[in-house]
Every structure is written in structure tokens, then in C-alpha cells.
């Protein structure tokens, strides 16, 4: 397994390199000089030069990139253009919020997707199947933030079961955390559960027609065991890839859903940064996202190897 992880990590090096170059070049892509942004129109030439010096803008491009990368690898992503906040502090402070939202919604999406997909696959063309397929089609057309608004209207404003806004960290109160994360996670996870359900259904329908399923039944193993052990293990192989992709989607979706619930996560940070063209902050956000995606991909590969013996390096 270690070998697999190392192999995959090495394969990800070019990707990480390109992303870092792209991220770094954001500063140069900006139409305005960043020093302008920071000081504003009425700065003196001297102030202007100081800022350029501090940002290293006077250095040639390549050494500047190397410097930037060096510091980024040490966890130093610079400071915001607009206040003296360290980018890494700001990002790390909000990361747990967005992460817990993404993780819970991924879990919901997986569970709902599996349940609906399996139910549909067991009786193709039945009413269950049609209902699940129809539900999945609709689920993929509903914007997560609108679904969030509806959930708030029903379960927070009307029924008052959940708080309408805000987020309680897991560390301060697990129960309140669960209450605060439930609605946003459901809102966020809806479309992904639809996508997963579709994949589960088609994978499961395919697997259930395989000889080894019939052979296992012929051996007198119970229907439940054959479905949940023999069929599901194989059907999960393609589902893992979809789940991995959906986690990336969820991570992006979280940025928007956070706004519905006034959750102070990476989304709020990103939106503020964009409006102010706060490039260091955006660079930090992109890098964090990429690292998360890479971790998810590694985990996917490991799970994939676990489910599919043929994919294991021998």
C-alpha cells in the first residue's frame, strides 16, 4: 500500500508544479499593479517603492517564484494586501469549518446515493427505480443554495429544529456542531447524492448480471449476502472515482452554501478576497484546495486498490 501511495504521489508532482506556477502568476496576471491596490491612488512614490520591495515585485520572475514556493512549502503564504493578517492563519482558522461541512455532506451523499442506487438497481424499471432515477434527475437540477434556503425556511424558521445561521465548532460542542452542520450539509450533498445514486445504479445493474453473482447464488448464499458483499464490493469500484470527484465538487459548493447559512468558512474568505483582489489570500485558498484534492485522490487510490485486487501493484 505504501508503494502505491508513493507511486501516486510522484505522479502528482507535475500537477502540483503546474498549479503552483499558475497560482504564483496570478499576481502578474492582475491588470493593476498590486502596489496600487494596497496603497491606493494617493500614495507617495516612496511608499509605493517600499511596498514593491516588500512584495518582492522588483525581483525577476524566476527567483521570485522560487522564493515564493520556498516560503509556501514552509507554510508561509504571505500576508493579505489589506491588513496584516497572515494568509496561512486566516485559511487555517476557517479550514475546519469548510472541511467539516464538506465531510458531512460527502457522507450524506454517499449514504443516500448508495441506498437509492441499490434500491433502484435491485428492481430495474420498477417504480422504485423510476422514482430514484427521477429524483436523481431533479436533484441534479436543484441549486444547492436554493435547497439550503428552502431547508432554512422549513426546518429553521418554521419548525425551529435547527439554527438558521452560524456554525459551532465540533470541539466546543459536538451536539451543537451537529445541529449547525446538518442543514448546510444536506443542502450541499443533494446534487452529489443524485450523481452517486446514478453511478451506483448503473454499476450495480451491470455487476448483478455477472456470472459470479449467479454462481454465488447457485452456491446457496443468501440474497442479502450476495448483494451486499459480492455485488457491492465490485460495484463500488467505479463509484469510488465518482465519489472522489464529487468531494471536489462539494468543496467548491461549500463556498456558496456557507453564504446561505452565514457560516464563516473559506467561502466568505474567498468572496471578500475576490472583491478586494487580495491575491495572496486567493493564492493561499487555491493551494489549500489543491492540497485537499490531492489528499482525496490519494485516499481514492488506496480505497480503489483495496476494492479491486487487479489494481494493486504486485
Amino acid at each position: 500500500m505504501l508503494r502505491l501511495v508513493v507511486q501516486r504521489l510522484l505522479a502528482l508532482v507535475p500537477l502540483l508544479f503546474i498549479v503552483s506556477v499558475l497560482t504564483f502568476s496570478l499576481t502578474s496576471l492582475l491588470p493593476d499593479d498590486p502596489a496600487d491596490l494596497i496603497i491606493g491612488q494617493w500614495g507617495t512614490e516612496q511608499q509605493f517603492e517600499m511596498v514593491r520591495e516588500r512584495l518582492g515585485l522588483n525581483e525577476p520572475l524566476v527567483p521570485r517564484y522560487v522564493h515564493w514556493l520556498e516560503r509556501a512549502l514552509h507554510g508561509d503564504l504571505g500576508t493579505s494586501f489589506f491588513n496584516s493578517v497572515e494568509v496561512s492563519d486566516a485559511v487555517m482558522q476557517r479550514l475546519p469549518v469548510t472541511l467539516s461541512l464538506t465531510a458531512v455532506s460527502a457522507l450524506i451523499a454517499l449514504l443516500v446515493g448508495l441506498a437509492a442506487g441499490i434500491a433502484a438497481a435491485l428492481r430495474p424499471r420498477s417504480w422504485t427505480d423510476r422514482l430514484a432515477t427521477f429524483g436523481a434527475t431533479i436533484g441534479q437540477a436543484i441549486p444547492n443554495f436554493w435547497f439550503g434556503i428552502l431547508l432554512v425556511a422549513v426546518f429553521a424558521v418554521t419548525l425551529r429544529w435547527f439554527p438558521a445561521t452560524g456554525f459551532t465548532p465540533l470541539s466546543s460542542s459536538p451536539w451543537e456542531w451537529l445541529r449547525s452542520v446538518t442543514l448546510p450539509a444536506i443542502a450541499l450533498g443533494l446534487a452529489s447524492s443524485a450523481a452517486i445514486a446514478r453511478q451506483v445504479r448503473s454499476a450495480m445493474v451491470g455487476v448483478l448480471q455477472q456470472d459470479y453473482i449467479r454462481a454465488a447464488r447457485a452456491q446457496g448464499l443468501s440474497r442479502r449476502r450476495v448483494i451486499f458483499k459480492h455485488a457491492l464490493t465490485n460495484a463500488l469500484v467505479p463509484v469510488v472515482a465518482v465519489l472522489s470527484f464529487q468531494i471536489t465538487v462539494l468543496l467548491g459548493g461549500a463556498l456558496i452554501v456557507e453564504q446561505v447559512f452565514a457560516i464563516n468558512g473559506l467561502g466568505t474568505l474567498a468572496i471578500t478576497a475576490v472583491r478586494r483582489q487580495d491575491i495572496p489570500m486567493i493564492q493561499g485558498l487555491v493551494l489549500v484546495m489543491v492540497v485537499l484534492v490531492v489528499i482525496v485522490q490519494l485516499a481514492t487510490d488506496v480505497v480503489y486498490g483495496f476494492l479491486n485486487p487487479k489494481a494493486r501493484p504486485s
Binding site: 498549479v19 496576471l29 492582475l30 471536489t248 467548491g252 475576490v274 483582489q277 487555491v286 484546495m289
Partner: peptide, 14 residues
Amino acid sequence: SIPGIMVAIVIIAI
């Protein structure tokens, strides 16, 4: 590899 919305946000930042 980056969430689509994040890509859009980055481009909008520029």
C-alpha cells in the same frame, strides 16, 4: 483538479 467554482472565483478575482 481544483473545484470549478474556485477556478471561476480566481478568474473573477483577476
